[in-house]
Design a protein around this nucleic acid. Structure first.
Lengths: 237, 237
DNA sequence: GCAAAAGTGTTCAAAATACACCCATGC
DNA sequence: GCATGGGTGTATTTTGAACACTTTTGC
């Protein structure tokens, strides 16, 4: 428990938390990583608190490493959620359970928190989901979310909206895909982000003439017209 | 004093502050609005704290209204500054002066704060600078800043960098210019933001064919080839 | 045999870029 | 008379958009 909840009222910066919207791509869908919350019935974003001697970005990286094992992750601040009522939205949670589990000191967690929202883009196969006593992680399609704790559904929606607004100018497909991928997978991500169908041929030509991807082989194990595999070109300047 | 410093350790959300980078355009330069800090010798961003029952955006709007009199302002979160040492950067400030002025209760201000950075873009002529007992506002060219309190120079730099990254895709010239302006003023802002010279004719054609500005007259009081005045077209819907 | 996934080029329109000369004024 | 700011148009290149048919396999 301690390892996964090293926080107390004294060692954290007060009234401030961090929540991470960890997104990935798998089987033609965008997924978000959720944890079963320590109070039954609701799922929550992987999150945590910032220690008194830590900055927010470091805290976010630490939290992500703890949850995913990864340290080289694309992670960005996207919005501060500060509605004074956001932590009152708790859907009739039974905090006595929490107190029983964690001791009465934990009640500092009932106070008002503002939370810094971060989004992270990861490669699906890089993540190994590991359950712990009080945690049970799982991938959910972003538009088929389970019942969410507090305002976490809103945080996810805002992360997606922010990414969508930026995608046209700052696309990040590389962060979501494995080393080798088909053009169809890449286009699929663009179509999700831009919320429109893209012409196959024009999309492919643009990616190739932009020089961001290169052909690296053909998919094996398919017994018909095997698709070409591409990988992103590492621009080492 | 109270009106301009309504905060105390009990009514604010702990460890959290707000700083506003208020930018404008005047005589072919970009300016930032600074206040002489209540400790002598350094200038500071207009800022403040979030009340216990207030959200951060409302607090930022409240602070801006107090400082500028304006309530209809373009204001956006851009970065959370959370270096644990950021409030230790105070350049040998004489806090005994502060204590003498404000009473010993004010010493809560010495604790660690994370600060949410907002940028605001305003029309220069809309702002009337008013001095108060403990405040003395002034416009400074963004690349000729005076000695700044704490990490405020860094906050300004980061605001400018953020705007520059977004400008190509989300230009906001309208927010900085008066109702009527010359194309040369508009291009001047773009050149500052994009950090490059733009072709006069191509720039003008693009703005016009994009349909965001319209001709509204000619500048008066110039006794030679009077420049055309433009104004942004209000897109209703 | 038909639906699904993948391969492949051309044409047209729109947008971005490059570029030069004239006019009026202040100094 | 010359530097400054301002007015104006064309030609070229680049980019984006629209669009159809063939192959292979699974069912």
């Amino acid at each position: 428990m301690k390892e996964y909840f090293p926080y107390n009222a004294e060692n954290i910066h007060p009234g401030f938390s961090i929540d991470c919207v960890i997104l990935s791509y798998h089987k033609r869908k965008i997924y978000v990583l959720l944890n079963k919350f320590y109070l039954d019935g609701y799922w929550a974003l992987p999150g945590g608190f910032m220690f008194a001697n830590e900055d927010a970005d470091s805290a976010a990286y630490r939290i992500l490493k703890m949850r995913t094992g990864l340290s080289d992750i694309y992670l960005r601040q996207f919005h501060l959620f500060s509605d004074p009522k956001r932590t009152e939205m708790n859907q009739h949670l039974d905090f006595s359970r929490l107190e029983a589990q964690m001791g009465s000191q934990i009640m500092w967690i009932m106070r008002r928190f503002v939370t810094m929202g971060y989004y992270a883009l990861v490669r699906y196969d890089d993540i190994e989901l590991v359950s712990h006593d009080n945690e049970q992680p799982g991938w959910y399609e972003v538009d088929k979310l389970p019942s969410m704790y507090s305002d976490h559904a809103n945080i996810i929606r805002t992360a997606i909206t922010t990414l969508r607004e930026l995608w046209e100018y700052f696309p990040l497909g590389e962060k979501l895909l494995p080393e080798q991928f088909t053009i169809s997978n890449l286009r699929n991500i663009y179509e999700f982000m831009l919320e429109k169908k893209l012409d196959r041929r024009n999309f492919q030509r643009k990616m190739l003439t932009d020089g961001v991807i290169q052909e690296v082989g053909r998919k094996e194990g398919v017994r018909y017209n095997a698709p070409v595999l591409y990988s992103f070109i590492n621009k080492k300047i």
